[in-house]
Each structure stands twice: as structure tokens, then as C-alpha cells.
Design a protein around this nucleic acid. Structure first.
Lengths: 209, 209, 209, 209
DNA sequence: TATGAATGAGGGTTCATTCAT
DNA sequence: TATGAATGAACCCTCATTCAT
């Protein structure tokens, strides 16, 4: 009765656009006020839509937050790529500096999103909680894996990769928090200094002698 | 009007006891459910007291949480003592291992409290938020100071102490989180391994070559 | 975003209607039970609306009461008009009888409202208190002014207009209270007799010989 | 088993003393804050007694207020005595001035009590309400009776004594309110002027030509 | 008699979600 | 699809009164 003709397509596109608009607005609001202090009223007001409209696009307050969180996690994950250890690749250290820089830029550019990730740590809806935990676990797993590889390749000293992965993860989280806390990225200039410092700290912790 | 005689003293003791009872119960409930999902109703039910009784001892929900938080921070702070660098003192590294052990034991023994510290990161009442932030800031400051000293004494390499302090802080926080997450402290045995691993990681990061 | 078209207009009208409905119901409840014994629950039950709906239209219990009070004061004030002393105007006494009649009719017709004004004298919310006091003060001021005029025009004897204004005010208030107390306006017929009596009393008190 | 011996008597006296102390304190508190804003906590704090002690002397908050109200009404009533119309008595007008003065002094001296009478008009507990209404009714009845007498004796003109009694009552109430409102009886000096003014107003209203 | 800790029935208000238009 | 009025379950907190000591 309603084939996927031009009209429906256009409708879909419009719908998708609306969704994204709301998501963007909600991201900003959540970042500014935090999950619990953000009310659906705040979002719809900022988005200029009616109460009911919100529920036309999202199932609930926690659902939209979950979606934002997922978006963020995808972005973070995609920014985490392994180092290339082939002969033709640039030196590992150079690659690592690049990795850290990427993350930092992601953090700075997605101030709002990252604020969420850092601040709304745990204690929200069960589902959000689970997502969060799962993310950090996968991150830890990824790090441990990388460290195991590095160890196998003789790049790293003989260390407890599980614990070391925790440590690296901890420095990264702290780094993000630090960047997020300094509102408006006033530190801008500092970013590079901090990035290098963190990398240096971790490399020494990992490579050792 | 009523001298601090035996009766009044006993009454005071009883009152103090009751307070502590409620605090203990509340700590457990907060740790289990998180700040926002803990209702005064939960606390009074768990404590077996009436609604009004709660407000006889604490001004509000946020007040009791703040008190728990302060207790925790005091304990954590007291467990953080500098190393003794006099000649007669034990080797610095031994002292540091001891420090880490202390913190870990504190964390394990105060599972509930620490859960709060780790999980309820930010976004609660403004006052709680401030307390939290202030604590981490003071911790960072303390660490930076210690590192500056170590650097001056030639114990540490030439590093960016501010950034390094962030890194150490990050590993400590992650460590606490990790311990907290593993419910019921099943890891018990692991604690020592983790403590040593973290220390090792940090020392290498700090001392370098 | 939404032009004031027919739909919006109708919505506004409906909203205004609802507001008035709640106000009417609340007026009756307040009049029957008094401010302190009227709970929001009573109002919403009588209005047949949900708890939340009440707060959609009014900020608080004291806010709706304040609004009712203001309505009443406006009505009372508008019923108080000076006498016309020009030659072509009807005799002053006739005009005055008319004034008293007006007030009495207002009182009888707005039994509920007046009950509030008379009974909830003082001691409610600070704002309500202030409103009340201000009203009676302005009434006193108005009366004194009128008496001063009358004196200047030689219509009144040489009297202490400030005190006299208090006296007139007192008789009016008592009159209102009397009418209000007799529930259901049983006195109806009496109203005229009382009005004339009060006027007579005041005129003699004011004009003297 | 316990004859009304010396000991018991002394105990009774002590008890009576305590009661009066609490009553005095409560009167002041009620006058300052009004009935609804006065909590039992305020009274016991001001009286320096324990919560339970209060209920040893008074059944409830409304009971103590009722008692204060009754005290006041008794005092007011006792200050209202008829005029002596025998030949040997002083002129009626002189006597009336004396009456008004008495009431005013009562009001000024019992500022707290009168405040209660004037402010807490109606709308408290049903019993308090009834008491209040009954008092004003009896006052009205008394006035009407006096006016009827005066009329019979030819002292007053031919007037509607019922309505006239309302008017007199109204001026008296307004007078009391005015005196009460001016905190701390700053008007002191004014009292006489006002008293005379009110009397003058009423006499003219009553006697007429 | 005196105490004051304990009680618990409300009271006002908020806010995520639904649903008729 | 869009609207926004309506809903009502919660939630925090107060305070008159009771009762064990």
C-alpha cells in the first residue's frame, strides 16, 4: 500500500534528520547537566519540539542516553587502532604518539560526549551501566591483547599484562577527565604537553629498561 | 540545665551508636544501589527505623551521603603518608609497596565506601560534587608535591610532575575501581599481585632508566 | 513556530477555561475549609483532575490562593467608586446607599470569595499576608481621602479623618463578616435593612449634627 | 492514700506555677508567629522544657491555644461593664470614655493576647473557631442589649439596635487591630486620640441629633 | 514528674510517560 | 506525524503526639 517510493524515502530522510537533531541537542544538554539533572523537558525545549514528539523518536530518556553512549563508544573504538609492526611501517613510538593524539583530539572535539563518558560513570539505568562496564572491559581486553603482542615481539619487557593494561587504561581515563574538566578546552596548548607526558609515562612503565 | 552526668552521657553514647548504625546501613545501601537509586525509604527500611527517626539524626538524604563521603575521604587521606627518606628509614621502594598495600586493604575492607567513591563520580548534589572534585584535586596536588620532592632529591628522573601525578592518580583510581568491581573481593589473593604490578608500572614510569 | 491560528486559539481558550474551572473549585474549597485545612488533594479531587494537572496550571497551593485573593480584591476595589458631587448628580446620600448596596451584593454574590477575605485574615504565607495588609491599608487610605474631601467641601463636620476612616472601615468589615457568616445568604431580605442601618450609622458619625 | 496534705499542696502549687509559665511563654510565641506557624517545638524551646513535659500539662497544641483564648476572652469580658444610669452616677458620656479607655489599655497591656484575638480570627481548630464565634456573638448581644436599654431610657435615638451593635463592634475590632498592628505600641500617645475619635464617631452614630 | 527519642500519617511537589486531538 | 494537556507514581520532608526510661 505504501511502496518505498520517493515520498516514503523523503519521509524517512526527514525522520532521520529529526532524530539526529534531537540527538545532538540531547548530547549537549546531557553533557552540561548530567544524566540525572537533565529532564526530558530540557531536551524538548532545547530541541524546540513537543513532549510527545520526543517519544515518537525515542523510547525513553534512558534510551536516548544509551544511544548517545553507543555513538560515543563507537567513535572511541574506531580511534583505537593497533600499531603496525611491519618493517615498512613508521617506528612504533611515532605511531603511539599519533594514537594518543587521536584520542585527545577526539576528546577535545567531542567535549560533550566525553563529558558524559567520564562523568556519568555508573549508577544510571541498569542497561547504561552494563554498556559502560562492557566498554571499559573491552578496552581493557584490547589493551591487554596489544601488550601481549608487544611482549611476544620483544618490544615490551616481561610484565603482568593484565595489570599493566589496567594502568594504561587508568592513565587514559584520567587524561580524558582532566581534559574534560578544564571547560572550554582552555588548555588547548597543554594538550600536546600532556599527551607526550602520558605517553612517556606509559612507555617507560611498559618498556622498562 | 542538665549537667553532663551519667544519664546524659549514656544518652549521648546511645545516640552516637544509633547514628553510626544508620550510617553503616546507609553506606551499604548507597554502595549497593548508588546515590540516585537509594531512597530514604530504603535506608529506613534497612535500618528498621521510622521515617521521622532518620531526620532526627540527619538533615537530609544528601547530608548523610556527604557525611559518608567525608568519612571515606578522611580514611583515604590518612592512609596516604609520605615516604621517609632519612638514612635510617627502610628503602623507599619497600615503603612504597607498603603504601600501596595500605590503600588496597582500605579499599577491600571498605568495599561499600569505596564503591561510592568510585561509582558516584560526579553529578549528584552540588555539594557532593564539590567535595569529590576537591578530594581528587588535593590528591593530585599531594602526588605532584611528592614527585617534586623526589625529583629534587634525585630519586626520580626529570619528568613533568604535573602530568605524571595525573598518571599515578589514574592508575590508583583504576586500581580501586577494579577491586571494587569484583564483588565480594573474590580476588583477595589477586590483591597482592595487582598491588605489585601497579607499583612496578608506576615506579618505572617515574624513575625511568 | 506555531502561529496563533485557529487551533492554537482554541487551545488557549480551553486552557483558560480549565484554569477558571480549577479556580472556581478551589475558591469553593478554600471558602469551605479555610486555607490551612484545604489540601491540594482536596482541590484536585473536587476538580476531578490529577495531581500533576494542578501544577500544570498553578505553581503551588499558595499561588492559587493568592490569585483568588487578587481576583477578589480587584472586584472589591472596582466596586468602590467615589461619589459624584457635581450639581447635576443625584444627592450624595442616594449615591452612598447605592455604594453600600453594591458592596453588599458583591459580598452576597461572591460568598465564597468574601469568606476567604474575611476569615483568612492573617497568618498565611508571607505574600498572602502582605497582600491582605496592603489591601486594607489602601482601603483605609481611600476612605481617609474621601473624608478629607468631604470635609473640605463642608459636607462633613470637623472630625479626625484618620480615625473616622478606621471606624467606617470597621463597620464595613463587620458588615461583610456578618453577611458571610449567615451561610447561604438566608438573610437576603435583611441585606437591605442592614445596608441602610450601617449607612445611617456612619453618616451620623461622619456628618454629626 | 494521699491526703491533701502539705506536700501534695506544694506539689499542686508547683504544678500550677509551671502551667502558668508555659502558658505565658506560649502566649508570646503564638502572638509572634501566629497559630499555624507556631510549633510545639517553639513553645518547649522557649519554655525550656522537654517535649513530653508539654503534654503533661496540656492535651495538645490546640488545647493550650484554646486556654489562652479563653483567658483573653474572660479579661475582655470583665473589662466590659455597663454604664450606671442612676442619678448619683457620673454622666453617661464620661463613663463611656472610661470604658473605651479600659479596653484600649487592656489591648495595649495585653499586646500578645490581643494579637491572637485579632489575627487568628477563624479557620483554626473547630473548637477554637466555635469559641471565637461565640465570643463575638456574645459581644454583639451585649452591645445590642445595652443599646436597647439606652433607647428605652431615651438616651439614644430610634435606631436599629441590631445593626448599630454590629457597627459599634466593627469599630471596636478595627480599633484593636489598628493598635495591635502598630508594633511595640509606638502609637502610645495616639491611643487617647484614637479612643476619643472612636467614641465620638460611635456616639454620634448612636445618639444622632 | 520529667525527659527526649521514636513514631508515622500526611503534605506539597516533580517528572517520565501516555493519549486524545 | 506532531502536539501538549493529562496522568499518577514516587519522593523528600515535617511535626504533633506517644512512650520507654
Amino acid at each position: 500500500m505504501m511502496p518505498t517510493d520517493g515520498r516514503a524515502e523523503r519521509a524517512n530522510k526527514k525522520r532521520e534528520l529529526r532524530r539526529r537533531e534531537i540527538l545532538d541537542v540531547a548530547r549537549a544538554v546531557f553533557a552540561e547537566k548530567g544524566y540525572h539533572h537533565t529532564h526530558v523537558a530540557d531536551i524538548i525545549e532545547a530541541a524546540g519540539i513537543a513532549r510527545g514528539t520526543f517519544y515518537l523518536y525515542f523510547e525513553s530518556k534512558s534510551a536516548i542516553f544509551l544511544e548517545l553512549l553507543e555513538q560515543l563508544l563507537v567513535e572511541v573504538r574506531s580511534s583505537i587502532v593497533g600499531v603496525d609492526t611491519s618493517d615498512s611501517a613508521p617506528p612504533v613510538q611515532v605511531q603511539l604518539v599519533d594514537r594518543i593524539r587521536r584520542i585527545l583530539h577526539l576528546v577535545v572535539e567531542n567535549h560533550a560526549l566525553t563529558t558524559i563518558l567520564v562523568r556519568e560513570a555508573v549508577g544510571l539505568d541498569a542497561e547504561v551501566d552494563a554498556k559502560m562496564r562492557e566498554f571499559y572491559q573491552s578496552l581493557h581486553f584490547y589493551l591487554k591483547d596489544a601488550l601481549d603482542n608487544g611482549k611476544a615481539m620483544g618490544l615490551l619487557r616481561d610484565l603482568d599484562t593484565e595489570v599493566a593494561a589496567f594502568c594504561v587504561l587508568g592513565t587514559i581515563k584520567q587524561l580524558m577527565e582532566q581534559v574534560v574538566m578544564n571547560e572550554d578546552g582552555k588548555l588547548a596548548a597543554d594538550v600536546d604537553r600532556i599527551a607526550l607526558g602520558v605517553l612517556d609515562f606509559n612507555l617507560r612503565g611498559l618498556i622498562g629498561r
